[in-house]
Design a protein around this nucleic acid. Structure first.
Lengths: 139, 139
DNA sequence: ATTTATTTGCAACAATGATGCAATTAACTA
DNA sequence: TAGTTAATTGCATCATTGTTGCAAATAAAT
């Protein structure tokens, strides 16, 4: 059923079905957390670095994945919920938790980023809540 | 008076007064925003890359500056308030605003990071609120 | 002025980000 | 099903950033 879902996701976002894209998407679906390029390389082994780099950018452009701000040095991506789309942009209104032990980043869908009073002159387009600590597997 | 303050800050954190450290500290005091290594290099010109790299790490270790999570790819540091110290760690309980136009990062001291309900099993050690948009100078 | 532990600056290397280009291939068409 | 074409890949290449070892330089104490 992941197969079907992957095919549908690719088609829905006007992306050709290639080996790399399928593998990457399957991994995102399976892991259900934010992944850095390195994480993906380690999991998929044979994948080409540049192809993966562009695959992630393409997925981001088309609204399949978004950058997960987790306060780590690594750039991570997470699967988008259905609200994301290439026209209106990304909706990513949940908190991200980054474990300092295993260095994994989890999306906490149940925790929404709070709305804050806008300081004078500042136009806020998005807000992100980053939580750091120790995850349930490491504590 | 910045002179005095710089001297005091260095002495208070048991750091020798060197040219690089003084210049970097003065810049932080003057700019009053989060700075990436590149920003500092551009401002100070002649500074050595590695020395600056280590200066920033040292300042961080000693509790003079902290990492400002701003959701950008760049690692930025901001001057600590007095509550930070090397023993108990960093307190950085205010929001950071990152402007997508000028790419500067401001500390919004008046906006505190909200406390959130802890999900089961997760131990939260710090939380960070990142705001993105357009700053008052760019809008 | 001398001593000593700290700090600097260079060399060197790894990892990551980014782009041009020719070869390959997915999806469409006849 | 074979052929066409635009998208995609993989390589080469380069820039930037992060990191460490080490010898020379230097701040602070004596």
């Amino acid at each position: 059923m992941t197969q079907k879902k992957v095919e549908h996701l690719l088609k829905a976002h006007q992306l050709r079905r290639t080996e790399t894209r399928v593998e990457v998407l399957e991994l995102f679906l399976e892991k259900d957390m934010a992944l850095a390029q390195k994480d993906i390389e380690d999991e998929l082994g044979t994948i080409d670095r540049i192809t993966l780099y562009r695959t992630l950018r393409t997925f981001e452009d088309k609204g399949l994945i978004h950058r997960a701000i987790d306060g780590s040095e690594k750039l991570r991506f997470a699967l988008c919920s259905h609200e994301c789309n290439p026209v209106e942009g990304h909706f990513d209104e949940h908190a991200h938790f980054h474990c300092k032990v295993c260095e994994k980043t989890y999306c906490l869908e149940q925790i929404h980023t709070p709305s804050v009073r806008v300081p004078k002159g500042y136009q806020i387009e998005s807000s992100h809540l980053v939580l750091k600590g120790i995850c349930e597997h490491c504590s």
